[in-house]
């Protein structure tokens, strides 16, 4: 549990700032404490032109970081992030390849339909499943227009080189991409973005849309980006550029 000092300080600042704005939150001001802040809105931008169809750096990294298993059963495999190939129906535009993951919508339909509030949206805009509360009704999977969710059909064990800091699967609950919330809370980037920048082509960036200085907020406000199924009015946090 080594936390890098700088990020702790940075986050501490955010916590302090939010504490000033929201004095209702009780603070047992331990220095290492972090808390989701209503000031941020985490988001991702994918530059489709840079994404290569042979590259699976993001999906591999996600499986490694989050212990996402494969069951050798395409019908039931769990996918937090997947590479999707797009072919123009009229055959005019060149084919593209891009990652699809949970869009962390501002108005997530999965949260609306969840009977126990197990699916919820954190103050900083990350949509999560509280696996302690999920009863496995799967209504959220019906409601999600991005097919971002998977039901865990089989229990799993921690693989040899698995990540012991992240829980493994408990059968019967629904799960999905968490934006690597455990890393984001430590001031790091999600594993897929990290891998894309290190081993991939640097197509993905991650950051706080509400922070005017962040690269993502500049780019999202300057370039024409798209979100998936904008017609549904969900306002996703995953933006695509160059489609």
């Amino acid at each position: 549990m080594n936390m890098d000092r700088r990020s702790v300080l940075g986050l501490g600042g955010v916590v302090a700032a939010s504490a000033m704005i929201a004095p209702g939150i009780h603070l047992i001001a331990a220095p290492e404490r972090t808390e989701a802040s209503g000031q941020s809105r985490w988001a991702m931008l994918v530059d489709v032109n840079k994404c290569d169809s042979d590259c699976t750096a993001c999906t591999t990294a996600c499986r490694q970081e989050n212990n996402v298993p494969t069951f050798d059963d395409p019908q039931r495999d769990i996918h937090w992030i997947r590479k999707v190939e797009l072919k123009d129906k009229k055959g005019k535009r060149p084919s593209v390849s891009l990652p699809v993951l949970c869009n962390h919508c501002e108005h997530p339909p999965c949260v609306d339909v969840c009977p126990t509030e197990a699916s919820f949206i954190r103050k900083d805009g990350i949509v999560l499943v509280d696996k302690h509360r999920c009863i496995g009704c799967r209504y959220c999977m019906i409601a999600c227009p991005y097919k971002a969710r998977s039901l865990v059909y089989h229990a799993t064990e921690l693989s040899e080189n698995g990540n012991a800091d992240v829980p493994i699967r408990g059968k019967g609950v629904v799960e999905k991409c968490t934006f690597c919330v455990h890393l984001v809370d430590q001031g790091k980037k999600p594993a897929c973005v990290d891998a894309c920048q290190k081993d991939g082509n640097g197509a993905m960036i991650f950051g706080d849309l509400n922070d005017g200085q962040s690269e993502i907020s500049k780019r999202v406000h300057e370039i024409r980006t798209q979100t998936m199924r904008a017609d549904l009015g969900l306002n996703p946090a995953v933006h695509y550029q160059g489609l």
């Binding site: 949260v111 009977p115 999920c134």
Partner: peptide, 25 residues
């Protein structure tokens, strides 16, 4: 048929009134 029928009581404790399921309960 719930994935976690043992947690059924949670529907009584935590209720999301936006969900059609809660209403159906």
């Amino acid at each position: 048929d719930l994935g976690r029928p043992d947690r059924m009581l949670l529907t009584m404790i935590h209720m999301n009134f936006k969900s059609m399921f809660t209403w159906n309960v």
